[in-house]
Structures are given as C-alpha cells and as structure tokens.
C-alpha cells in the first residue's frame, strides 16, 4: 500500500519539480521592474544632496590651477558655444544633455582624478553632479558659484574698502595676483612696464660771435 502510494507520487515527481522551477522563473518577470532602480538608493541620494561637501570654492580652484595640481579635471557642462567663448584653463566640455554618452564615461567613471563640474552658476553643474552621484561615480565636486562666481572672486575681485581688516586686503592681493595669472592686466601693473624715455638734451652750442676788432689805433 505504502509502496504503491509512493510510486504514484514519484511517477510525476519530475512534473512537480518542473512546475516549481517554472514558478521561480516567473519571479524573474518582476525583476526588470526593479532594475530601473539603478545606482544608489533614494535615501542615500537625499542625504548626499543635503550635504554641501560637494562644493569647492573658486579660490581653491584658482590655487590648484596656478600650482598646476594634476589631481583633478574640470568639466564644463555648458553648451559648445559658450565653451568656445570662454572656459577655465584645461577644462573639458561635456554638455549636460550629453553627460551620459559613452564617449565621456571614461572621464566621469574613474577614481583617479577629482572631477569638478562647473557652468554659469551652479545650477546645471549641480544637476550633472546629482546624476553622476546616483550612478555612484567617485570624487565628484561642483564649483560653487560657477563662472559668474569665478568672475566676481578671481577675474575681477572687489577692492576692499579702507575700514576692512588686513586679511581682506591680503585676500584681495592674492585674488588680484591670481587674476593676473589668468590673463587680466591691471593698469597699475602695466605702469611698471612703461618706460618713459627721457628726451635727450639738446645741446645747443651758442657760437660766440667773434668780435670784430673794434676801434683801436
């Protein structure tokens, strides 16, 4: 009796196993939906967004550029046209809409260099940062204030007024020197170069008129 029942079950044991496996395979259908959730979790992204660690100041970048720090790459996320007009030295142009193109992936998805995004202000740069951050690319930064900030702090720094502390003047001098490095020429700097040639003295020899012998006997 026992043997008979067992035989009955075992006769379609393969069928049972097949059904189980098919059911499990069916579970795979659910997976592609989950696949959309690429990159880090939403909670992680939120905490990264709140943290302001991503920002680097224009002073830092100018310092790095002047000392020729090889550890970072600048990425201009504006369009090609604006990139052509002006950009930071050695910056690479990756327009925001082409950010995820295959050809640029090597620049972004690496952990050798610090990547610094910049645009006119930090709006587009932040967006580029957020997308790359979600893909958990490493060492991403954003230039605080973007090129507008770059202009007001480095290229054309505001002169401190007289009642400001000495540190403000020091900072101004550093920024001014930096701006000279980036090509700005100041009138007072130019003055040093001016060579005023002195007019050669004209020597005018006054010929003495020989007196005509006068009189006498």
């Amino acid at each position: 009796m026992d043997k008979k029942r067992f035989a009955k079950i075992s006769s379609f044991r393969y069928a049972i196993m097949a059904v189980v496996l098919i059911l499990l395979a069916g579970g795979l259908v659910i997976l592609p939906k989950y696949e959309k959730n690429e990159g880090i979790s939403a909670d992680q992204l939120l905490s990264n967004i709140i943290s302001l660690e991503r920002y680097v100041s224009a002073d830092d970048i100018s310092n790095k550029l002047i000392t020729q720090d090889p550890s970072f790459i600048l990425i201009d996320v504006r369009d090609k046209e604006s990139y052509g007009k002006y950009t930071l030295p050695n910056a690479i142009n990756i327009p925001l809409k082409n950010l995820l193109d295959k050809e640029f992936e090597a620049y972004l998805n690496q952990d050798q260099y610090d990547v610094v995004f910049f645009s006119n202000d930090n709006f587009y740069a932040d967006q580029a940062w957020a997308i790359c951050n979600r893909l958990s690319y490493a060492n991403l930064h954003v230039l605080k204030g973007g090129l507008n900030g770059w202009f007001t702090t480095i290229i054309n720094p505001e002169k401190p007024s007289e009642n400001m502390p000495a540190s403000a003047f020091e900072l101004y001098n550093t920024r001014k020197a930096a701006s000279m490095f980036f090509g700005v020429v100041y009138p007072d700097q130019a003055k040093i170069n001016t060579v005023v040639k002195r007019a050669p003295k004209k020597i005018i020899t006054v010929k003495k008129k020989k007196r005509v012998a006068e009189g006498g006997c």
Binding site: R78, S82, K85, Y86, S119, N120, D121, F123, Y124, L147, N148, W150, F151, T152, I155, N156, F182, G183, V184
Partner: peptide, 11 residues
C-alpha cells in the same frame, strides 16, 4: 544659468 559677465571680453 545666465552668463552675467563676458569674461573673455573683460580680459
């Protein structure tokens, strides 16, 4: 994202 200053022209 408005470019406030023309940096190249300024330089």
């Amino acid at each position: 994202e408005i470019s406030k200053n023309n940096i190249a022209a300024f330089i």
